[in-house]
Amino acid sequence: MSTKMVKFIISRQDNPETAPYLEEFEIPHRPNMNVISALMEIRRNPVNAKGEATTPVTWEMGCLEEVCGACSMVINGKPRQSCTALVDQLEQPIRLEPMKTFPVVRDLAIDRSRMFDALKRVKAWIPIDGTYDLGPGPRMPETKRQWAYELSKCMTCGVCLEACPNVNTNSDFIGPAPLSQVRLFNAHPTGEMNKEERLNAIMDDGGLAECGNSQNCVQSCPKGIPLTTSIAALNRDTSFQAFKNFFGSDR
């Protein structure tokens, strides 16, 4: 009995400056294999479909359970995590590409630094440090905590930026993920104390206003985060903030 083979067409790139090219691989099928275990198989024996020895394919991974966001890539045309992409559920040949919205480091590995920079820019944290004990913060209602937990599932994987038509080289849009984090931290009872700072940060160039409502982000998010609801809610908050900034406010 001949072993069943799995065919992969992988977009490869030797370094950030060189042109990408396609390379085909055929590896023996194993039950329950995912894209990462297939890539590991290629790494173990880096020989392409023509039987030529080649370099092992580079990719990034971390948790292997879809919570870290590191292993995102474009699989059969859709950006998603390779750890939860089960080979048996994919149409063959399986096409792997890097998420080209981000700078490609090598093969399928990309540099998501812009997302972490955006989180810094929008102040996606709760400042609690001081020179003395500030005591406990205000309590958060349990129902609100459960709601906020959904927003906190964001793993900065970059899928929403890859799917967004307005995140590209023509625009400086920071993308849906950091915007939704503003909503998360503004909803926190302590975080709310710095709400205006975050709203003003997303009213800057490349911020909230660059959204064109294609709503691909909410369709693509692997964690089902209500990104477009966050964006619309922030549109409302910034409407008020803009008037307050312009006319002044008695708070």
């Binding site: 799917a163 625009s171 064109g212 409502n213 294609s214 691909n216 369709q219 693509s220």
Partner: peptide, 21 residues
């Protein structure tokens, strides 16, 4: 200006709102 900033991708993401976009 807004129009030419977008990189349309309806072939990859054929969702209703993306087509409206």
């Amino acid at each position: 200006y807004i129009t030419f900033q977008a990189k349309n991708n309806v072939t990859r993401y054929g969702y209703f709102r993306n087509m409206m976009f």
